[in-house]
Design a protein around this nucleic acid. Structure first.
Length: 210
DNA sequence: ATCCCGAGGG
DNA sequence: CCCTCTGGAT
């Protein structure tokens, strides 16, 4: 995709949504971190439903650790992969308390050292909790990058690096949320809403499914 | 490459 | 029924 087209692409996403943000419900960096860990292969609607009951009981690392793995399971059983997630969340809380005074580190290496936290989750926390210009490539952004031609790549890291290179500086901080929201509601996996798409004429895919 | 793993939609 | 959802660890 040409540089001038990329510019228009982002300008239109910004017109649609001037101040985009995550749809995960959270009050602190800790709660965002937990919500993102829980969101793996799950919808944010499902995660919010669980954390609405969980966070009042376990709003921080100490209370989450006190809740324990079995206690936590009861709150997140409606989410997929709940056994692994319960184990990882508790182990993560223990490390936060031991090494980081119960706070979430604003550091990629420290974040990725936490169980259940990989590159994508670290990127979300760095961007959304700490305002850093990272782009977390999830299923939506990977699909959108390839489908539209904005940032094609065989792996998520490839797509991420291409997005970081191609995205104009002024759009970098919010690019993550513009792309994910567009992927979730318009450039959908199953039935992309090409007829309602604001970047239809800039896209290399268009309505090839229609 | 494979496993984990429930809810919601078509 | 099938596919998808802000993946990570082995």
């Amino acid at each position: 995709m040409k540089k001038s087209v990329v510019e228009q692409f982002y300008q239109r996403l910004r017109e649609n949504n001037p101040a985009p943000t995550t749809e995960l419900a959270y009050a602190t960096p800790f709660q965002l971190l937990i919500a993102v860990i829980l969101s793996a292969q799950a919808t944010d609607v499902g995660v919010n439903k669980a954390t609405a009951r969980l966070f009042p009981v376990a709003p921080d690392a100490a209370s989450m650790l006190a809740l324990g793995e079995d206690g936590l399971r009861d709150y997140i059983k409606t989410i997929g992969l709940y056994r692994t997630k319960a184990k990882n969340v508790i182990a993560t809380c223990r490390i936060l308390l031991e090494r980081h005074a119960g706070e979430v580190p604003a550091d990629r290496a420290a974040l990725e050292a936490l169980p259940g936290v990989g590159r994508k989750t670290a990127n979300v926390v760095l961007n959304t909790a700490f305002g850093q210009p990272t782009i977390a490539v999830d299923t939506h952004i990977f699909r959108l990058g390839n489908r539209t031609g904005l940032a094609p790549g065989k792996t998520v890291v490839e797509v991420e690096n291409k997005l970081l290179r191609v995205t104009p500086r002024e759009f970098l901080k919010d690019a993550h949320h513009w792309l994910i929201l567009h992927g979730r509601y318009v450039c959908k996996a199953r039935q992309p809403a090409c007829a309602a798409c604001c970047v239809y004429d800039l896209c290399e895919f268009r309505d090839k499914t229609a």
